[in-house]
């Protein structure tokens, strides 16, 4: 008992540190950008005494994007953690369920056929593209689940079918992409690389319900994840309704990742790396793992997006590329170090 308590305390403390780091990077990120704003002016803006220009930069350009980054980061990371638990495979991430490929194909089709003709839909028109992405992601995920179904779904089969469907969507994607005019092609490429393109408060509002409902729900389901990640036989032995819980958790992961991909494009590696980093800090128990994964993902994406905005300033690079460039070396380091 004593040791359990100790670990628990340590985990909570690490989460506190993570939260502090988020706050810290939040303020650093707020201060960084092509238009230089001195920290003192930032504070002035927050107490309502800033110039109109600074207010515009901070509240309309930087803040909504940062908040979206935090939400997407948390969502993708938790989705990854769920999938790694459910698939009993440390290499699972939302991309494996075809969410990125499905959403990507939907967006490419949207840019190819629809773009520019949807302005008649009024308020709804700005959500057409994210909704298309969401629908595409969901479709791909259900296709994979259906094809992997054979008197139940085994993790290995899920992963294998995922690889196959991903390849099929990727092939369809390249056919359409190659027929595009150069600027549409570029728009599609940037989306596919993962870039936070939805950058205003309307999207924050649209995104928020998914995150604040689904993430706490997964915390509530944490103990089932603990059981499921022990493997099917153990799980059945412990009396878990394996298939039902697995389906619910998968659905949650898909909904989380789908909403994130709709707003942030095909960000790879985050759902893979964040749970690993969190696991190294707080251990494998999902009650602690899921919250710290959420914090870790939010932190990683915020930092990556700050880099993406500033490294080649004034032009920007897709944040997904920064995440891969940071995540892959860490992954390689893990590979070299672990036995």
């Amino acid at each position: 008992m004593e040791s359990v308590k100790h670990i628990n305390k340590r985990a909570v403390a690490s989460m506190g540190i993570l939260a502090l780091l988020i706050v810290l990077s939040f303020f650093i990120s707020l201060n960084m950008g092509y238009i230089r704003i001195a920290p003192i002016d930032v504070i002035k803006v927050f107490i309502g005494a800033g110039t109109e220009e600074n207010q515009l930069v901070l509240f309309d350009f930087r803040l909504p994007r940062m908040v979206i980054a935090l939400l997407i980061g948390a969502g993708l990371a938790v989705s990854g953690a769920i999938l790694q638990g459910v698939a009993q495979n440390g290499l699972a991430d939302p991309g494996i369920l075809g969410i990125n490929a499905g959403a990507g194909l939907a967006v490419v089709l949207f840019i190819f056929f629809v773009q520019g003709t949807s302005s008649g839909l009024g308020m709804l028109s700005i959500f057409v593209m994210p909704l298309a992405a969401l629908a595409g992601g969901m479709l791909a995920a259900s296709l994979i689940y259906a094809l992997a179904w054979k008197k139940g779904v085994t993790p290995v089969r899920l992963i294998l079918v995922g690889i196959g469907i991903n390849a099929a969507f990727g092939a369809a994607l390249i056919i359409f992409q190659l027929k595009m005019n150069p600027r549409d092609f570029m728009q599609a490429t940037i989306w596919l690389s993962g870039s936070i393109w939805a950058t205003n408060w309307k999207f924050v509002v649209a995104m928020l319900p998914w995150i604040i409902i689904l993430i706490p729900y997964t915390f509530y389901k944490a103990r089932y994840l603990n059981v499921l990640s022990l493997g099917d036989h153990t799980a059945v032995g412990l009396g878990a309704a394996v298939e039902k819980e697995r389906r619910i958790l998968l659905l949650t992961a898909v909904a989380l990742a789908g909403s994130c991909v709709a707003m942030g494009g095909g960000i790879a590696f985050l759902g893979l790396v964040a749970p690993h980093l969190a696991r190294r800090i707080v251990g494998p128990k999902h009650e602690m793992l899921l919250p710290s994964t959420a914090l870790m993902g939010a932190l990683l994406l915020l930092v990556s997006d700050t880099i993406a905005r500033n490294i080649l300033s004034p032009s920007e690079i897709p944040v997904g590329l920064v995440v891969s460039a940071l995540g892959a070396p860490y992954f390689i380091y893990l590979l070299i170090k672990t036995n």
Partner: peptide, 16 residues
């Protein structure tokens, strides 16, 4: 991992 790293670099170059 190396594939992911290299393709993120090449995408960044390609887009930029």
């Amino acid at each position: 991992a190396v594939g992911a790293l290299l393709s993120s670099f090449s995408s960044a170059i390609a887009i930029h």
